[in-house]
């Protein structure tokens, strides 16, 4: 059996887990196996019934009141017990921040490691070969896993489609697991001051990255945004440097946007940025480096200096 992790907060599903179900079903089809879903939960899990509507061998709710809030210690103990009991060939998870936090620990408990953040896999005559992005998205690596299972595999957001997870009916099994007292105690999650701009409603976004070089240079991007009636946004390093407020950050730890036009100036296109803007209508990239990963996503690209391209664009737009 292949076990897939269902992530949730207070029994509200993290939709990334549907992508993980799709991935696990796909692999099960290739290797002639079945899929079981695992939900760590503090009590009666109302999410289990929802997950039971997928084509799964069973849904396992691992319960202990120490699992009512996430901790890496608690989740690792719970999972380890389920793995020992079920003896799965693979454990499949979506590469979310929570999974990054506990999956490597869980794998290490079995003397193994995670093959993390995969973007696809192929079945090479019975042997699975996984592909990971390395060097900040500039290269791909095909990797094999040596030795005995269980194998721990996580997939990048978007590698599989959540809506392609096959429906079915699964039985629900509740297992009381042992969880040692976690060595960490969480407080309530919170958001920083409410966003003052809602970029999710923008029609056009001009986004700047580290290629802008200095805070003063933001003026040229601002001028382009004004000429286009666009909102200004940024990659993370720009917000880290406080050149723009954090509510302008696009990406996995910032906002997710889908304007009809997204213009990326001096942004390399790291996955954590891309997940926040890949559904934009038309994507434009201006970047000095012809191999920047952002070009894989762009409809139009200019390979060159943004400080040459942007003033010309402004002039041309103003001509109307």
């Amino acid at each position: 059996m292949i076990l897939v992790f269902i992530e949730h907060k207070d029994c509200v599903l993290n939709k990334a887990s549907l992508e993980a179900i799709a991935a696990a079903q796909d692999i099960a089809g290739q290797i002639g196996s079945t899929v079981g879903a695992v939900i760590p939960c503090g009590g009666d899990c109302v999410l289990a019934a929802e997950i039971a509507n997928y084509d799964l061998e069973k849904v396992i709710v691992a319960t202990n009141e120490r699992l009512s809030t996430y901790t890496p210690d608690g989740y690792t103990d719970a999972w380890a017990e389920i793995i020992r009991k079920e003896n799965p060939s693979h454990i499949v998870m979506a590469h979310t921040y929570q999974v990054r936090d506990f999956c490597p620990k869980l794998a290490a408990r079995f003397g193994k490691e995670m093959v993390g953040d995969c973007i696809r896999y192929v079945n090479n005559g019975g042997e699975l070969v996984f592909t990971r992005r390395i060097f900040l998205g500039k290269l791909d690596a095909d990797v094999k896993i040596k030795g005995e299972g269980p194998y721990f595999v996580t997939f990048q957001s978007g590698a599989f489609r959540g809506d392609s997870a096959a429906a079915g009916t699964a039985s629900v099994e509740t297992v009381e697991v042992e969880v040692a007292e976690p060595r960490m105690s969480p407080e309530e999650p919170f958001q920083e001051a409410k966003a003052s701009v809602d970029l999710t409603k923008s029609e056009i976004i001009v986004a700047v990255g580290r290629g802008i070089k200095s805070e003063e240079n933001l003026a040229v991007a601002k001028e382009l945004a004004d000429a286009l009636g666009a909102d200004l946004a940024a990659s993370r390093p720009i917000c880290d440097s406080e050149w723009l407020p954090i509510d302008r950050q696009i990406g996995s730890s910032g906002q997710t946007v889908a304007p009809k036009l997204y213009i990326a100036l001096g942004i390399s296109g790291a996955i954590q940025h891309i997940v926040g803007m890949k559904n934009s209508g038309t994507i434009v990239a201006i970047n000095k480096d012809s191999e920047a990963p952002i070009f894989d996503l762009a409809d139009y690209g200019i390979v060159g200096d943004l400080f040459e391209a942007v003033p010309t664009m402004i002039e041309e737009i103003k001509k109307g």
């Binding site: 003397g111 193994k112 490691e113 093959v115 070969v129 996984f130 992005r133 390395i134 998205g137 500039k138 290269l139 791909d140 690596a141 095909d142 990797v143 094999k144 896993i145 040596k146 030795g147 005995e148 299972g149 194998y151 191999e291 990963p293 894989d296």
Partner: peptide, 13 residues
């Protein structure tokens, strides 16, 4: 390592 990952091939995406 019992089940480590081994890079087989690196290439341009």
């Amino acid at each position: 390592v019992d089940s480590g990952q081994v890079i087989e091939k690196v290439y341009m995406p």
